[in-house]
Nucleic acid binder design. Structure first.
Length: 804
RNA sequence: GCGAGAGUGGCGGAACUGGCAGACGCGCUAGACUUAGGAUCUAGUGGGUUUCCCGUGGGGGUUCGACUCCCCCCUCUCGCACCA
């Protein structure tokens, strides 16, 4: 054994050894205690790994290694989310083709991941750009289509007038183009494919009550789904057309205060109800807002709007109220129309103030409520100016007025969600073609399953252009096909699908990655899924995790999966920032882990990243403390090097080991890596203080270090004479009896202040403890001449006297 | 504005269910060993007017006892942003 710890040598050695021995591979068929440890697969950026990856992946890997040491057959696969706008834009920028670029970046990423010493089973790797993968992505699209969950409809796309191209949502920053910060992104309309995720809104919400996920993530999902209970109310037009304006409100109790209606500029009835006199003004307003749609959402701005010239009847008051158009009403939520109650809704209040519309108070705030000047009172109260409902509490009135409306055919209870259907069409090149064909005779025809994959052709010029459609629409050999039904000349869909579809099912693919005949083998799926632990960043708390759940539920409903939630457990790791900011190329604060691995080795670096702070919180990257971890691992190295087989560990030391096992085990269960490392360091300190260690002490230490510093642990395990991997060893058992100290130290408080300490037998009675405590000079001084009014004994903790 | 999370030594952070604030580490100070030290080891390290007092963003409260619970306020980070 070398005198000095040399990470470069032993890490290369063990990475080679693991590869040769197949240490990280698990036999999926034979495994008896399957444990699926999943980490969010990366997008292989050209820059390679940054320290955020070196935090996220090792953290998940530590969990997997810990489970393995506990005796599970841990499956820890990895893959690459390599389709999408990032790769495409990067390729455009450097003048390369993604089809050539991606394999290079994937290879680089993979070698960097390997340097981190992850327990990855590469024999089940996936790459979303592989036709053997996206064939099944397309297959899932077809499944959803046949199941009635995919539909085609006109929808706005983001158009940058400066780039002359369609933008992805993530390229739109606050309504402006990412590359032209002064250019407002416009809306254009195109036929696009949607998945009807809104049908699953209630179930996606309800299941959050029982799935074992980070609470923060669940809250984010709940907010995103955005369930609101209220009523749909219909307001008849007074023009004899019989038309009604349907609105959604969460405050039916304020109906008597609805003094006008507002339609979104996109509302389908705008053109029909606008009076001739107002037509010019309305058209101009609508045109302008549609163009500026994304800017309009940028922030809350001054209210703008225009009167249509039309009136509707408030079914409660029987009064005619004007119908306006304003961009503060969103077309995609509710019915795209609202009843405005300026007295009790701040937005309506501002609008009414701007346009001189009447304000009628219908809710009396509870006595003593302070209502700010020039604001709407949005809280609960008692109804006034509400005819038969006067005097009713607002909560009760919600139900009563809704029922009253329902009886008269003017409305009903209604639940709305913020969640929108998932638009999966992308007018781009670098993605899986959507497997659909448009035939003049047969209409929309899905590509037959046996014709999959629809290969993404190699297109020299894949730059999007001013046509607003995918570059694939320029490739005749691609889009000209014969209709699968009638054989007539037909046209292929030229949009590709959203990257989020690729990543919505990759975890289903891993166990079956070796199979080309099925997307996921039923038996393997049954055995290995749902995923036991999923670890990833909170930036995917909403979209990715919502889409995955939806796809899983849909496949479950089709009878293709035996479970409806994909992940038994999900834990979000924190974000690593640099100088307080998110790491990004444009900020120039991206930290590459390679330099640290070169200098300190992967073990030190992994452990240091975990020691930086709580795994679930992340933190700001700095390298000031890395020497501490290095010193710790060097000390462990020396302990093993100086190991004396004759030595007997002292009882104190043995007890310290038991205590450490209990602590580290408990911490690892909860991903509290920073405190687990602290406990390991304490144990090393104890070994130095109460040494020498015997074999058992050192082996316990090594096994506990192994998840964090796998190479070092293997090397020292071998040095202790073992022929097999330390990861085939078992996590040590601690003896709960050994945790109980014979003597315990208690603090002695007088009037809440610590005045001394006593050491007593663990079994000492309260009386003995109190007597001993009173005898300490420092305590006696404070008790002198006072009467003890109360005394509290907290076993194992303290004694407290209250004197007066 | 709404939602989530967080404010503790010079720094990163610890503290179970209300029970000795500052574990562990960085840094710093002193010493030992050494030709040498950016190696190793030992001791110390919240502040102060040091028998004692103060101290977990600020202000109140509950309690024998509060970083922890309750009320009000401030600051920061992240997410969503006119969702009726």
């Amino acid at each position: 054994m070398e005198e000095r710890y040399n990470p470069a040598v032993i890490e290369a050695k063990w990475q080679r050894r693991w590869e040769e021995r197949g240490t990280n591979r698990v036999d999926l068929e034979q495994a008896t205690r399957p444990y699926y440890n999943l980490m969010m697969f990366p997008y292989p950026s050209a820059e390679g790994l940054h320290v955020g990856h070196a935090f996220a992946f090792p953290g998940a890997d530590i969990h997997g290694r810990f489970r393995r040491l506990q005796g599970y057959d841990v499956f820890e696969p990895m893959g690459f989310d390599a389709f999408g706008i990032h790769s495409e834009n990067y390729a455009l920028k450097i003048g390369a083709h993604p089809a050539e670029l991606i394999p290079r970046t994937v290879a680089k990423f993979r070698s960097q991941l390997n340097r981190l010493g992850l327990m990855l089973d590469w024999s089940h790797a996936v790459d979303t750009t592989d036709p053997g993968y996206y064939r099944w992505t397309q297959w899932i699209f077809l499944k959803l289509y046949h199941f009635g969950l995919a539909e085609r409809k006109k929808a706005p796309v983001n158009w940058c007038p400066a780039c002359h191209t369609v933008l992805a949502n993530e390229q739109v920053i606050d309504g402006y183009c990412e590359r032209h910060p002064e250019v407002a992104v416009e809306q254009r309309f195109a036929e696009q494919w949607f998945f009807k995720i809104t049908r699953y809104a209630e179930r996606l919400l309800r299941n959050l009550d029982w799935i074992d996920w980070s609470e923060t993530t669940k809250t984010a999902q709940r907010n995103w789904i955005g369930r609101s209970e209220g009523a749909a109310i219909e307001f008849p037009l007074n023009d004899g057309s019989g038309l009604r304006i349907r609105v959604f409100t969460t405050r039916p109790d304020t109906l008597f205060g609805a003094t006008y209606l507002v339609l979104a500029p996109e509302h389908e009835l705008v053109a029909r109800i606008t009076s001739p006199a107002q037509r010019g003004a309305v058209d101009a307003y609508v045109q302008r807002t549609l163009k500026m749609d994304l800017v309009r959402r940028r922030s809350v701005r001054d209210k703008t709007g225009v009167f249509t010239g039309a009136y509707a009847l408030n079914p409660a008051t029987q009064k005619l109220i004007p119908i306006w158009i304003a961009d503060y009403v969103l077309a995609e939520y509710g019915t795209g129309a609202i009843m405005a109650v300026p007295a009790h809704d701040q937005r309506d209040f501002e609008f009414a103030a701007a346009f001189g519309l009447p304000v009628v108070q219908v809710i009396q705030p509870p006595p003593g409520t302070r209502v700010e000047q020039d604001t709407a009172y949005e809280g609960p109260g008692v109804l006034v100016n509400s005819g038969p409902f006067d005097g009713m509490a607002s909560a009760e009135a919600k139900k009563a007025i809704t029922a009253w409306l329902a009886e008269r055919g003017f409305g009903e209870e209604r639940v709305e969600y913020k969640l929108h259907d998932w638009c999966i069409s992308r007018q781009r090149y670098w993605g899986p073609p959507i497997p659909m064909i448009y035939c003049d005779h047969c209409g929309v025809v899905p590509v037959p399953e046996q014709d999959l994959p629809v290969l993404l052709p190699f297109v020299e010029n894949f730059r999007p252009d001013e046509s607003g459609v995918s570059p694939l629409a320029r490739v005749r050999e691609f889009y000209e096909v014969s209709c699968p039904r009638c054989r007539a000349l037909a046209r292929r869909e030229t949009d590709v699908s959203d990257t989020f579809l690729d990543s919505a099912w990759y975890f289903l693919r891993y166990p079956s990655a070796h199979r080309s005949d099925v997307a996921f083998d039923p038996e393997l799926t049954c055995k290995w899924l749902p995923v036991d632990m999923y670890i990833g960043g909170n930036e995917h708390a909403v979209l990715h995790l919502m889409y995955t759940r939806f796809i899983t539920m849909a496949l479950h409903d089709m009878g293709l999966l035996p479970f409806e939630e994909p992940f038994r457990k999900f834990r979000a790791h924190g974000l690593i920032t640099k100088d307080g900011a998110k790491m990004s190329k444009s900020r120039g604060n991206v930290v590459n882990p390679d330099q640290y691995i070169d200098q300190y080795g992967a073990d030190v670096f992994r452990m240091y990243m975990m020691f930086l702070g709580p795994y679930t919180e992340g933190g700001d990257f700095r390298d000031e403390g890395i020497a501490g971890v290095q010193r710790f691992l060097e000390a462990v190295w020396r302990l093993v090097r100086q190991f004396d087989p004759q030595a007997q560990a002292s009882p104190v030391l043995r007890r310290s080991v038991h205590r450490t096992i209990a602590k580290v085990q408990e911490d690892l269960e909860e991903l509290r890596y920073n405190t687990a490392i602290a406990a390991l360091m304490s144990l090393a300190n104890d070994i130095r203080r109460y040494g020498p260690p015997d074999r058992w002490v050192l082996e316990c230490l090594l096994i506990m270090i192994a998840p964090f510093a796998p190479h070092l642990a293997e090397e020292l395990w071998e040095a202790l004479g073992h022929q097999t991997s330390i990861f085939d060893a078992r996590w040590p058992q601690y003896d709960p009896q050994a945790l109980l100290e014979e003597q315990v130290e208690l603090a002695v408080q007088v009037n809440g202040k610590v005045r001394g300490r006593i050491t007593v037998a663990r079994t000492a009675s309260d009386e003995e403890i109190v007597r001993a405590a009173q005898e300490i000079p420092s305590v006696r001084a404070h008790l002198q001449g006072k009467t003890i009014r109360k005394q509290v004994v907290v076993p194992g903790r303290l004694v407290s006297f209250v004197v007066g």
